[in-house]
């Protein structure tokens, strides 16, 4: 699993990246009450806002950690947004993206680097 400085994560299987927000991000948001995930077929560049996550207090953009085309958005989050708090790096995934540039994934932080980054915050 790889991470961005904006606290998204990426898990690559073949050329499809499953992406979500890290446990750190989910904990910082607090109770998630609404998630808007992208529809299949939409394309995003790395760094584009591709989803929205809302806590009781505020709405936050989620940025595409890699460029590519959405294969599937996690529709289950519409009716169960609390999954993002319960299992942010598993069942709480946001989308599966067919990546266009594998080197973007390689350039992201691994778990150890992300943990070290979190320690600096």
């Amino acid at each position: 699993m790889r991470f961005t400085k904006d606290h998204e994560w990426v898990r690559l299987e073949g050329d499809v990246a499953t992406v979500g927000i890290s446990k750190h991000a989910a904990d910082a948001l607090g109770d998630v009450v609404f998630v808007e995930t992208p529809e299949a077929g939409k394309s995003f560049n790395q760094g584009d806002s591709f989803a929205v996550v809302e806590s009781v207090k505020a709405a936050s953009d989620v940025y595409a950690p890699v460029s590519g085309e959405v294969v599937e958005g996690n529709a289950a989050l519409a009716s169960a947004p609390e999954t993002v708090n319960a299992d942010p790096e598993g069942e709480g995934w946001f989308a599966k993206i067919k990546i266009s540039d594998a080197s973007q994934v390689e350039a992201l932080m691994d778990q150890a680097a992300y943990d070290a980054f979190l320690a600096t915050l």
Binding site: G30, D31, S55
Partner: peptide, 11 residues
Amino acid sequence: PVQYEGVLAEH
């Protein structure tokens, strides 16, 4: 303090 255990639980 904006929250202790969580906004929903506190509400």
